[in-house]
Computed example of a mutant assay.
Amino acid sequence: MRRSVGLALATLLMTTGAAGTAQAAAPARGPVAAQAAALTRLHATSSNAFVDSSGTVHKLIATNIQPLWDANSTDTWGQSTYDSIKAKGFTAVRMVLFWDMFQPTEADWNETAFTTLSTAVERAKAAGLYVILDTIHMSGSPDGQEHVPDWARVTPTDDGSVEGLDAVVENGLGFLQTVANRYQDEPAIAAYDPVNEPFRSSTKSARLLSDYTQIVNAIRAKDSTTSIMLEPSYGDSKVPTSSFSSFTPTSRSNLIWSVHDYYNGDPNSANTNGYDANGLGQNPNPSDGTTGYNSANKAALASHLQVQLDMAKAESLPVWIGEFGIGSGATGHDQYIKDKVALYKSKGVDYAWWEYSSDNGNGPFSMVDANENWRSWVSYLF
């Protein structure tokens, strides 16, 4: 959960050529795909997030990456960046998009932004990387609307009747449909993640799932097959299965539960499994770039994740970790990565690191330096 952390929209001046509880058994995953030159369309099953038409499971280990740096420029990561990501061992990228770059006014589409995105998708595809489109990336203020176009923003109310996610539900469905319409036939798009860390109070999970009903139906009106990810409030809130009575899309096929797992297992927390009485995930956590990790808390990592796994299993949804990470200077950095990755592997869950690079490689989560050289700890991600 990065609720209090604003995205550093990089001073990206890169050139286009640079770049506790009992453990449950992991779900049966079937044969794992070998590397292939061409990408094939994937779909979701109740236990696996990414499967091809032959039933072969594809392991999508990804990094988050920002493909657009300036709404009015086509500068973006070069082919060598995506080739390097693939060569390092990643099989996918989660592309972080900012709605205000694409739809500056209600009536206008910024085709420069769409062109840049198309270039990025094609380069990822050419490298053999699948793409998850983080389509409306909510973060920052007010109430997650830092990158919501001015015309589409809502004014949050003290009583919580209006929250940041209302901007998406009221004004953003057209943007989601436009993206879906453009990419409905692209096999490199493994899934849409329509709303990053939706700003809806953790006590309003039924309303959140009602919102997702509208979001899923809007996308399905343009794209009937590409998988769609659902996230809990702020990416890591506890959602009771009873709230799913509000989730009534026209189709529940090809859906994935996506969690942002920054939990560090703080033993001083009085919260059960890292969630407070309102179901909100513990904060602060390593998503702030400075909070560290004590390896003595390893068992708590599993206890926290199991809450999400149990709920998803009850709803026949596979799980994918859309974000996790820890700041480069934080205590226990390397061990945190090792323990998280070991946990994910034991559960048969794939994941994405936050992030490839920001601020010319100086961002706290960056896997590369300013010259795009991989940092030594990246090998722990595999």
Rank of each mutant, 00 (worst) to 15 (best):
T119H: 11
A127V: 02
A92N: 08
F90S: 04
D108K: 14
A124H: 06
T112C: 08
A120Y: 01
V96L: 12
T105C: 00
M95Y: 09
I136F: 07
I136T: 07
T135S: 14
M101D: 15
V96P: 02
T115I: 05
S118M: 08
T135L: 12
D108I: 08
V96A: 13
Y130V: 03
V121N: 07
G128E: 07
A126P: 04
Q103E: 13
A126I: 01
V131T: 12
Y130R: 02
E106W: 07
S84L: 05
P104I: 05
I132W: 09
V93P: 05
F90W: 07
T112W: 05
F102N: 02
L117K: 02
L133T: 03
L117Q: 07
R123I: 00
V93Q: 03
M95L: 13
E111Y: 10
E106H: 10
V121R: 06
T115P: 11
L129M: 02
T119Q: 14
A107I: 05
S118W: 06
F90C: 00
A120V: 00
V96I: 14
S118G: 15
E106I: 07
T119A: 11
D108H: 12
T91Q: 07
I85E: 04
T91K: 00
F98Q: 13
D100I: 01
D134M: 10
M95Q: 11
K125E: 15
A113V: 05
L129E: 08
D108A: 14
G128N: 00
I132R: 04
Q103W: 05
W99P: 00
L129W: 00
V121W: 11
T135R: 04
T116S: 07
T119E: 09
T115V: 11
W109F: 11
F102L: 09
R123L: 12
L117G: 02
A124L: 01
W99F: 08
T91C: 06
A126W: 02
A126L: 09
K88W: 07
A126Y: 04
F90T: 03
K125C: 07
I132K: 00
L129D: 07
G128T: 04
Y130L: 01
L97Q: 01
V93G: 05
A92M: 10
P104A: 03
P104M: 08
T116N: 13
G128A: 06
G89A: 06
A107T: 15
T115M: 10
P104K: 09
E106T: 08
V96N: 10
V131R: 02
P104G: 04
R123Y: 02
K125P: 11
A124E: 01
L117H: 00
T105H: 03
V96R: 12
A124T: 08
K125Q: 15
S118E: 15
I85C: 00
K88N: 11
I85K: 02
R94H: 03
D83H: 10
G128D: 09
N110S: 09
T112R: 10
A87R: 13
S84F: 09
I132E: 10
Q103N: 12
A127T: 00
T115G: 09
R123F: 06
D134F: 10
A127W: 06
A107M: 12
F102I: 03
T135K: 05
A107Y: 09
I136R: 00
M101C: 12
T119F: 04
